[in-house]
Design a protein around this nucleic acid. Structure first.
Length: 846
DNA sequence: CTCGAACGCGCG
DNA sequence: GTACGAGCGTTCGAG
């Protein structure tokens, strides 16, 4: 073919590569002089000496189309030779969703509105198709496959487009996705995972996502270049990073479209240079970035044998995990709009009733038409409480010093009114017994002057107690309490309504009837975060009269299987702290909270009450966070329990005395973090702690608590990621087998994982689908088939219970529940009984 | 009118 | 000033 057609005289790809690198004399090093500047600075703790890979010169671009299935098979062989398989999809709205990006007046939208349109129409796997894609076996070369674009380079033109697409993905499944000799590389593989799933295929190991690599590495070695640590990916997409690392300006999507008068990529003629280069560039640079950043990652050692460097951690855990977020986003969870509608009206009525009561109370003291707002916390309401009624405040904001009206403060204000307190600090005097003769004592006088009337001298506390007892009731005590209680109500229902009902309902996908929560790994501890809507903060049934979790249901003919790591963070604390008491407690299936309660009360364990145990439980959890008695007191208040500071201190002390490894771990973690400048998880994720050696005591102790907590919380995240990677892998392997593909299992998996992956195929796309993760819990949607459900549950339990390291001192334990709607779950045993399967676990799979 | 800060609340 | 991690809705005031 005549390549000169693809590279027109001016502005062609080859010339563009030259002009972007050559004239820039400063671009001698990989990322330009600014990087040198970064490295010149004295190394702070946690910064590694990195030998940056030298900039490779961009060669002649060998970009060509593949026209037949045989071409694709042949190129897969080529990728097998190099071991590299960059790939990338171009997607366009399908026949039913080709809505032009115009506003109500017919003008083409731009900017943010255009981004939203693209996301909705072109990037949703339920509304769009893969119209073209590319593959790359090496730097500077790539192959494009045009399915829908018009022109002479169409893939298998004799077939219908849908048939061509199906045949293409079948071919890729057989020779590419399941090929253990090729690293499947995609920038933002979350996206590729979703569209691969659309065609029922899975991206199997080994695989990599350079986007994850360059951000994770930047966090460690180029923190100066991350403007917003909470969104470390901003400004770090493929195009800006390619410009920064390789000095190459990649084509812009919108430019390609407008040059070709196209609204959708599949309208760009495939025999134009634009279509070919745009398509191929992404795969080419996916490969180049992968090779570049892996050189960097290899230089960062990890503190464990399983993944000796950051490179192994990235390749084994973190990059493959983008497949997991992708598959969970693809499936989402079914949302029952009918039930939610009924409950929404219920909440609206309750809310309106509370608002009316509040307005009536205000009117009764002469304030007409009080503006309640949605949540009952407008400044008019605040003014009514503190200026009109003059109710005593219970807490104040640190930043603005304004009185607080959160649920704790409301509870405390009611308590203060009931007990005639004017200041929240007076609460402690209520514990002081009131002398019998209190009525005849004037606490404002002194014993010196009152020898005749006072039988004895009184302590300051007693005098305070008497003063409180002698006080008049607050003039607005009754209506004040009534008003505050209605505020509590309105707050509760307003949150449920706006955040959890309306806030979720608006995300229901019209095609699937499901909510596809978004997941991201960019948290400080490497946990997942979820958004749009957040799928990880749905109210628990014990705290939600409306039962929002029940709006999430299994599809007809399916069940939800919920499997959680029991006592996850405490088990990891037992590992990390080396605490023998804790390890033994888990080994012998003792009740850890009861043990703490026994220390706390001095009672034998079996005499501990439920109430005492729940106090100890809060203390045990608090210890994982480096907690103090102040924080514990707050936690109790949230639980509706009032405890004094000394009581809380007593609980904290009891935890430390029961499990002496915990305070030891806190000290050790702190020392280690001071030396390293970072905290590290079980498999090697590192969190920088820039203030760990700060002279500011407050910020330093913040980082010290993080130093103790991150290895626990982050290790939990690492272990969940490994488990979910295995779940994705198995579903992909079994699905491929089901498609008649011969599969092999990636050699680098640990032996126990290999064993679990190689059991008889029983999973399948569309029948055993991972739909959510909530930090210690995996939710899958399974066919309502007892044999499948029991096989799956015990298989996944085995995966979740794999010892994280050799000779791991604590056994992980996973517990399975089954639900038809999320809020109504039963144990697997209960479900089996309900299905008449008393000896449920027929374990043919494991 | 838009945007960010502050607050408050849901989750593990 | 006193707990780790996260996202979202409301209100309000600044620009």
């Amino acid at each position: 073919m005549n390549l000169s057609n693809m590279f027109p005289g001016n502005g062609g790809l080859a010339s563009r590569v030259k002009t972007t690198t050559a004239p820039d004399s400063t671009a001698k090093t990989a990322v330009g002089s600014s990087l040198e500047d970064c490295m010149k600075q004295s190394r702070k703790p946690g910064e590694w000496p990195i030998k940056w890979p030298s900039l490779r010169k961009q060669g002649f671009k060998d970009y060509r189309p593949l026209l037949t299935i045989q071409d694709v098979v042949d190129y897969c062989k080529r990728m097998e030779e190099t071991g590299l398989g960059g790939f990338d999809y171009e997607t366009s709205g399908d026949r039913d969703h080709r809505i032009p990006p115009v506003d109500e007046e017919g003008n083409t939208v731009t900017g943010k509105a255009l981004d939203n349109w693209t996301r909705d129409v072109n990037l949703d796997p339920w509304k769009a198709e893969v119209c073209a894609m590319s593959l790359s076996a090496a730097a500077d070369e790539a192959r494009a496959i045009f399915i829908d674009n018009p022109g002479i380079n169409q893939f298998e033109p004799a077939l219908s487009r849908s048939e061509a697409r199906i045949r293409l993905f079948d071919t890729l499944e057989k020779y590419f996705f399941t090929n253990t000799k090729v690293v499947k590389i995609a920038v933002n593989m979350n996206f590729e995972t979703k569209f691969t799933a659309k065609y029922g295929k899975y991206i199997l190991m080994p695989c990599a996502d350079p986007f994850i690599a360059w951000i994770r590495l930047s966090q460690l070695i180029l923190p100066q270049k991350i403007k917003n640590p909470k969104r470390p990916y901003v400004g770090k997409g493929l195009k800006p990073m390619t410009k920064e690392i390789f000095g190459v300006q990649m084509s812009e999507f919108t430019t390609v479209l407008s040059r070709n008068n196209a609204l959708f990529f599949d309208e760009v003629p495939n025999d134009e240079h634009d279509a070919l280069s745009y398509c191929c560039e992404d795969s080419d640079y996916a490969v180049q970035h992968y090779l570049y950043w892996d050189e960097v990652a290899k230089q960062i050692p990890n503190g464990n044998d399983v993944y000796p460097t950051y490179s192994e951690w990235l390749k084994g855990i973190e990059m493959p995990f983008t497949r997991v977020t992708g598959i969970m986003e693809y499936w989402g969870m079914k949302w029952d709009s009918n039930v939610s509608q009924v409950k929404r009206e219920e909440a609206q009525n309750a809310n309106e009733a509370a608002a009316q009561t509040m307005r009536d109370i205000a009117a009764s003291v002469g304030v007409k038409d009080l503006n309640i707002g949605v949540g009952g916390k407008t400044k008019d309401v605040k003014s009514f409480i503190f200026d009109t009624l003059r109710l005593p405040a219970a807490a104040w904001s640190d930043k603005t010093k304004e009185p607080s009206l959160d649920s704790n403060a409301l509870m405390d204000m009611i308590f203060m009114l009931e007990n005639k307190l004017e200041d929240p600090d007076e609460e402690k005097y209520l514990e002081t017994p009131l002398p019998e003769e209190w009525e005849m004592i004037d606490p404002d006088l002194s014993y010196q002057n009152q020898r005749i009337l006072w039988p004895r001298d009184y302590t300051t506390a007693e005098l305070k107690r008497i003063r409180i007892a002698k006080r008049q009731e607050h003039p607005y005590k009754d209506i004040g309490i009534q008003f505050l209680k209605n505020m509590q109500n309105i707050q509760k229902y307003a949150t449920l309504l706006s955040s959890h009902i309306e806030g979720r309902e608006k995300y229901v996908n019209p095609i699937t009837g499901r909510i596809h929560a978004h997941y991201e790994p960019w948290t400080e501890t490497s946990r997942l975060s979820s958004s749009s809507p957040n799928g990880q903060n749905v109210p628990r049934p014990d705290n939600d009269e409306l039962g929002v979790r029940n709006f999430y249901t299994a599809k007809d003919g399916k069940i939800l299987l919920l499997e959680d790591e029991s006592g996850f963070e405490l088990r990891l604390t037992a590992w990390k702290s080396g605490c023998e008491v804790m390890r033994k407690a888990f080994r012998d299936h003792e009740d850890l909270h009861r043990k703490t309660a026994a220390t706390m009360t001095g009672k034998p364990e079996k005499e501990v009450t439920k109430h005492e145990r729940s106090g100890a439980k809060a203390g045990n959890f608090g210890s994982v966070y480096g907690g103090t008695e102040h924080a514990l007191q707050k936690t109790f208040k949230k639980m509706g329990i009032r405890k004094s500071l000394p009581e809380c201190k007593h609980i904290v002390d009891a935890v430390m005395a029961t499990y002496p490894g915990i305070p030891r771990m806190q000290v050790e973690s702190r020392i280690k973090a001071r030396d390293n400048g970072y905290a590290e998880t079980i498999y090697g994720y590192k969190r920088m702690l820039p203030a760990i050696n700060s002279s500011n005591r407050y910020t330093r102790s913040e980082d010290e608590r993080r130093a103790a907590n991150t290895p626990i919380q982050g290790s939990a995240a690492d272990i969940m990621k490994r488990a979910q990677n295995v779940v994705y892998e198995k579903c992909g392997l079994d699905t491929a087998v089901n498609d008649g593909v011969e599969v092999t299992i990636w050699e680098d998996f640990a032996p126990e994982i290999k064993e679990l992956l190689s059991c008889k195929p029983f999973m399948c796309h569309g029948h055993t689908d991972m739909v959510a993760q909530i930090h210690d819990e995996i939710i899958v949607e399974l066919d309502d088939d007892p044999e499948l459900v029991n096989n799956y549950a015990s298989w996944q339990k085995a995966v979740m219970e794999i010892p994280p390291l050799e000779n791991f001192p604590v056994q992980l334990e996973a517990e399975a529940s089954v639900a038809y709607s999320w809020g109504n779950k039963m144990s697997l045993e209960e479900w089996n009984n309900a299905r008449g399967l008393n000896n449920g676990t027929k374990n043919s799979a494991v």
